[in-house]
Every structure is written in structure tokens, then in C-alpha cells.
């Protein structure tokens, strides 16, 4: 009797788990797994402008995409953004976190200031930067007494986009690093103090190794985010001649998918970005073993 009672209880428990997991599972299927599978299908299919699969295309979509004039520049811009954004963001946030690590009277003030970018949405940030970098009424030009079209010139448009994405990332990464630094056992820091360890040795030989898991996490997530950069290109640059200087895989995908309804092209671009991201992540995890220290 107790056995059947147990099994009823267990079945009830299972049912509970099932219902609790149901919403997120449906959500993930509808918005993550299905589109992902659909993208793979689309990449190898002939897709019409309505998005309907009209037959197997083999590698035609890939040959077409990789043969396009604008593909290589888009790939290059994506990689350049990742190459600059990731280390710059880490450097800035780590510096800010180290500077504000110690709790002081005004801690709350500058902690809020440094994390503020977190509360701004990407599209709002784009509009803010667009006006800040505006050649005629922009604050940046006014401050440096310039008359320069930051987003208008093909030379600086990508740089401006990088500045924007770095700024967007600062808030959250700073918060993670700050809490990681403050999570270092107090006595370890006191030991360095009593033992007379210099500031530089303390930072580079104690603090940074001890927060390396957080740094690694930021490195990986930022890398993925960089590979997906598209908002500044779409919102600020839009469709104009100079936008060729900032096009990324994702903005190109957006334009081909939503503006020109070229679903085959869009699918191949997404898949390319995905494979690249996956490769980078695997590479990071391989190096992680040597460099990242996890507390026992």
C-alpha cells in the first residue's frame, strides 16, 4: 500500500514538474528551437519571398552568399567589432571595478553611474549616440570644437558603432566584476596587506586570477554579443551609401530577411555567425582550462 502511495506521490510530483516546465519549454520551442531548425532548413532550400520552402537547393545559397560583394566586408566588420569591443570593454570595466572596489561614502553614487547604461535599451542608446555624435548639434563635436560626421563618414562610422556597443556593455560587466572583486575573501586581501604585497602585484597576481571565472564569463558572453551586433547599423546607419562601411553579418541578415525577403541569404548569414560564435566559444573553453582558476 505504501508502495502505491509512493508511486502516486511520485507521479503527482512528476506532473507538477511537467506543468512548471511547460511554459518555458513552449516558449523555447516557438522562439528558439523552431526558428533555429527553420534557419538550417532554409539555408539548404529554395525559399520564395513569402518564406515558403520550394525545394532543395544544396549549397547554392552558400555559394551565392559567400560570392556576394558585401559578404566579406560584413564578416570583416563583425570580427573587427569583436576584436576591439571585447578587450576594450574588459579593460574599462575592470579598471572601473578595481577603482571602486573599496566601499566608500559615495560608493552608491558612482556604482549607480557606472551601471546606468544597463537601464538604457539598445534602440534608445542608438538614438542618444546618434544625437551626441551628430555633426551639427552633437555634444561630442561641441565639446571638442569639431564639425565631424561621426556616423556619416565611412572612416569613423565603425569606430563610432564600437564606442556605442562598448558603452552599452559597461554597466552589466562592471556590476559582475565589482561583485566578484568584493567576493574575494577579506582575509586574503588582508594577508596581502600584512605581507606588504605591492598594489600592482596584488592586482595582477591575486585579484585578477581570483576573479578569472567572472572575467572568462564576460569574455564569452561579450564575444557572442559582438558576433550578433546589428542594432547600431540598422537604427543609426540605416540604408545609405556609408552603411556599407559598418555592415555586419547580422545587419546584413536583417536587411536581406526583413527588407528584401531573401530568406535563403538570411539563413546562410545566421548560420555563418552561429558557427563562428560556436568556434570562438569552444576555443575560449579550451584556453580556459589553463588560465581560469575556480575556487575549490
Amino acid at each position: 500500500m505504501s508502495k502505491s502511495g509512493k508511486s502516486i506521490k511520485k507521479r503527482r510530483e512528476n506532473r507538477r514538474v511537467f506543468f512548471l516546465l511547460l511554459p518555458i519549454t513552449l516558449f523555447a520551442i516557438a522562439f528558439v528551437y523552431f526558428p533555429f531548425l527553420r534557419t538550417i532548413v532554409n539555408a539548404f532550400s529554395l525559399v520564395n519571398s513569402k518564406g515558403e520552402v520550394k525545394g532543395f537547393a544544396g549549397l547554392d545559397n552558400f555559394i551565392y552568399t559567400y560570392g556576394r560583394k558585401d559578404f566579406l566586408p560584413a564578416l570583416k566588420h563583425t570580427l573587427v567589432i569583436a576584436l576591439f569591443n571585447v578587450p576594450i570593454t574588459l579593460f574599462i570595466t575592470l579598471t572601473l571595478a578595481l577603482l571602486s572596489e573599496k566601499r566608500r561614502k559615495l560608493s552608491a553614487v558612482y556604482e549607480t553611474m557606472f551601471t546606468l547604461p544597463m537601464s538604457v535599451s539598445m534602440s534608445a542608446a542608438c538614438m542618444i549616440f546618434k544625437s551626441m555624435f551628430s555633426p551639427s548639434v552633437g555634444f561630442i563635436n561641441y565639446f571638442f570644437s569639431l564639425k565631424f560626421g561621426w556616423f556619416e563618414s565611412s572612416d569613423t562610422a565603425l569606430l563610432s558603432c564600437i564606442i556605442l556597443t562598448v558603452w552599452m556593455g559597461i554597466g552589466f560587466d562592471y556590476l559582475l566584476l565589482l561583485s566578484a572583486l568584493r567576493g574575494i575573501p577579506k582575509s586574503v586581501m588582508e594577508a596581502t596587506k600584512v605581507d606588504g604585497i605591492s598594489l600592482m602585484r596584488r592586482i595582477f597576481l591575486v585579484e585578477i586570477p581570483l576573479i578569472s571565472p567572472t572575467i572568462f564569463y564576460i569574455f564569452c558572453t561579450n564575444l557572442v554579443l559582438c558576433m550578433m551586433t546589428s542594432a547600431p547599423m540598422i537604427i543609426i546607419m540605416g540604408v545609405r551609401a556609408e552603411s556599407a562601411s559598418t555592415n555586419t553579418l547580422m545587419s546584413m541578415m536583417y536587411q536581406s530577411g526583413f527588407s528584401s525577403s531573401d530568406y535563403g541569404l538570411a539563413a546562410v548569414l545566421s548560420l555563418t555567425a552561429f558557427v563562428l560564435t560556436l568556434l570562438f566559444t569552444i576555443l575560449s573553453f579550451v584556453t580556459e582550462r589553463r588560465r581560469v582558476h575556480y575556487e575549490a
Binding site: 575573501p185 582575509s187 588582508e190 600584512v194
Partner: peptide
């Protein structure tokens, strides 16, 4: 602290774990 020439042993050891 560093100029006092003192060494300290902590309750939770405070070793550098890495």
C-alpha cells in the same frame, strides 16, 4: 601594516587559492 614587520596567520588560513 607592511612597514611593521609583522606576519599574521588567519583563522580561515587566507591562502592564495590559485
Amino acid at each position: 601594516s607592511k612597514d611593521r614587520d609583522v606576519a599574521m596567520v588567519f583563522q580561515n588560513y587566507a591562502l592564495y587559492p590559485h
